[in-house]
Write a protein that binds this DNA or RNA. Sequence first.
DNA 1: CTTGAAGTTGAACTCAGGTTCATGTTTGTG
DNA 2: CACAAACATGAACCTGAGTTCAACTTCAAG
Lengths: 208, 208
Amino acid sequence: MNQPSPSSARQLTSRGRRTRQQLLDAAELVFGEKGFEASSIAEITQRADVALGTFYVYFENKHALFVELVAQLGERLRKTLSTAVKGQTTRLEKERAGFRAFFEFAGKHRNLYRIVRQAEFVDEAVYLDYYRKLAAAYARGLKASMEQGELGRFDPEVIAYALMGIADFLGMRFVLWNEPEQLERAVDEVVEFIAHGLRSPARLKERP
Amino acid sequence: MNQPSPSSARQLTSRGRRTRQQLLDAAELVFGEKGFEASSIAEITQRADVALGTFYVYFENKHALFVELVAQLGERLRKTLSTAVKGQTTRLEKERAGFRAFFEFAGKHRNLYRIVRQAEFVDEAVYLDYYRKLAAAYARGLKASMEQGELGRFDPEVIAYALMGIADFLGMRFVLWNEPEQLERAVDEVVEFIAHGLRSPARLKERP
DNA sequence: CTTGAAGTTGAACTCAGGTTCATGTTTGTG
DNA sequence: CACAAACATGAACCTGAGTTCAACTTCAAG
């Protein structure tokens, strides 16, 4: 008999962990392609090569699986970004590395990218959590750079959301919509922009 | 008997137009609150104070109604923004006015804001159209300012998406998440940021 | 070898919601 | 007033999908 409990109260063996992961991987694919509501558990279990009933051994329901995916993604992305940024010294290099790492992550996990965007309508809490944690970490880094005098004194949170928005939209445009050959140039442009603004003197040089 | 056709091949009387609009208005509410899939036509017709069957007199199906809503929203927003921007002379004032108008629009049409974000998973074409048209108009304006020497020479498209991303995320944070009292300050911060960048000298003045 | 916990299965149950349609009502025109 | 087109209705049909469950298999420990 099945007795799932919150998430996986049951003790999992390596075999169980493997099956569970298969379901998570399949869900990443299916949710990413079709969206939460349009995805059926039947398709997820098929792609995971397990029977329908197996699903409920490892997850309470469709919703719980989705929430776990989003949370997992958030953690992975934050870790990826913080690692990428740590290797850099100047704030600008940190930003460049952060953008690059984000785009690379997005390219590798296109489906997860789309999954997060849906979280807004599936589970408000996990969606808020995702963006707030990301923004908080970002703002902390910015604040430190401001206090060191490397950046002007802005509200770190406002700037964090602004920069996240830039990354999100450029990712949408140049990663999701498939024009990777333009990505590198876009990163250069945008780093110059965030460094010196739209009136960047560097960008005015060519004028007569 | 009903015979809908693509959209509304049937000649509508003023009574018909009124009912149709009631359905659109109700759909805006319901889709915005629950998302496309989770919204039922039954709820939409209830809120519109019409019978279930009436829905199919005016719309081919649920999907068609959604697509029309998104397209309608896109048009309204573009018109709103272009009007707001036209009143300004300098590029920076145009940007400020554009941001303000966008946030105001988002505040008035929170549901529509959420609807657009879902279009990605409901109808790829209408979603691409929405962002591409917006970006194209934005880029045209930026390009003109660059050619006049008011801005540095960037790729207008890259900057357009970057600025759209900023607006989208700040709207999410300070309009959707309900902290309107911080909005005005956020706009000031972000205009300063896009004007002179993160190292804005104006923002460094206070340092010893 | 025994035993029980962990794992697996897929048919069957339920039910919600999109769509259809036959019927009845309203409205404007000649 | 008559007639047709437009409008409105909601019960009924139908399909798909989430979830349950009782029976079966695998596996490791003792």
